[in-house]
Design a protein around this nucleic acid. Sequence first.
DNA 1: ACCTGAACACCGTTCAAGT
DNA 2: ACCTGAACACCGTTCAAGT
Lengths: 234, 234
Amino acid sequence: MAEQAETLRRAPLSRDRVLRAAVALADEAGIESLSMRKLAQELGVVPMALYKHVSNKDELLDGMIDAVVGEIEPLVPDADWKRALRRRILSARQVLLRHPWAALAIESKLDATPAILDYLNAMVGALRDGGFSTDLAHHVMHAMGSRMMGFSQELFDTSRRAGRSGPADPAPPATFPAEAAARFPHLAAIAGAASHDDASVVGEGCDDQFEFEFALDLLLDGIDRLRAQGWSSR
Amino acid sequence: MAEQAETLRRAPLSRDRVLRAAVALADEAGIESLSMRKLAQELGVVPMALYKHVSNKDELLDGMIDAVVGEIEPLVPDADWKRALRRRILSARQVLLRHPWAALAIESKLDATPAILDYLNAMVGALRDGGFSTDLAHHVMHAMGSRMMGFSQELFDTSRRAGRSGPADPAPPATFPAEAAARFPHLAAIAGAASHDDASVVGEGCDDQFEFEFALDLLLDGIDRLRAQGWSSR
DNA sequence: ACCTGAACACCGTTCAAGT
DNA sequence: ACCTGAACACCGTTCAAGT
């Protein structure tokens, strides 16, 4: 990482180099500590030099988002639309786990970037190829982007805290505080019941990959049923 | 609004008054322009006076979130768990529409606030009462909080732009730019097919309420099926 | 003891002065 | 023409000086 910064400093500045340094900085230090000034310093450059390659901080963020979305595996053509979608969505999840700041950054953007439109467009294309009407495909796309509660699913998760969510510590105890358990008994109960990984019963910590696939398959199976029925909103 | 600010200025400062002014300011001007200094000015008070009632800006945000979550209709006991959950989630949606900044603010918090834990705890309680095992209830809670794509569903939506998302303009044309339509044909197709409200065919704009309920019912029906089957991950 | 102005360490970005 | 330092208009928060 030290020698990487060295190399970056020697090479001439370019939009790509700026974006890659910004993504790296956000990954390591967290998006909240990504500033034009710090980014310039990281690149061994005066702050104003960045504005040659990026018109402002917002446009920098757009570029960072597009770089991240570009890491998502392309949709591979597949006779089985469900498998194709499932695979691509799981790839997207892996990418967003590598860049913990990206999901929120994307959600807070008013306008979708070109890379995101590409991603979504390909997704709809796969649905159409799989026999979905444009009407059903439309509602499915909405359903895929919905969150039924405005609340993060990682309530007792520690992975986002340190900035880098690397697979460092082996199974953090996911301590549900005793007073909280008394006050929120139902939550304590499901926290205790979460033991899909090994045999222990309490304070297990969730297998996020399992939970994600559970929700994904719930949706995929549900929309498959609608498709098979020829469901239409009109 | 002018006389409201007047009244606020006269009353003695209190945590409640600070929080309500902050929520109002975020609703009107957007969360990005909520600063301790502007909030103080709105209250006719010197910036440092706020720190008597709020330890810092982060804690101010916590308080704002709890105030908003407190607006969600309590879960009414109902023999039909599905109806009870559906009703409460739709109430939560209405509240989050009134405070467009809140969903993102909640998602960006690392730790859930007490009000959110209350909300979730009651939700799990309703599931358990409805015959869900703790195991299934656990996975269901995860599924409810998931978003299959990190992308906002309001891709071509104008409501979040102006800050206040009031039902002002009647059916904004949702113009899908021509060049974009050429580049993202599948997206253009489903945008055109979105006509559940009246009869027009192109550039309709989505009925977000319909889309939300579509996704909600997809999930509710899916988990109902699992419950009826006695599904378990173990 | 309480309140509060000035100050500190930051921001993103403009702009004019240097080359 | 390009580059860049200083400057501007902001931040959140500390801290010491006032009452």
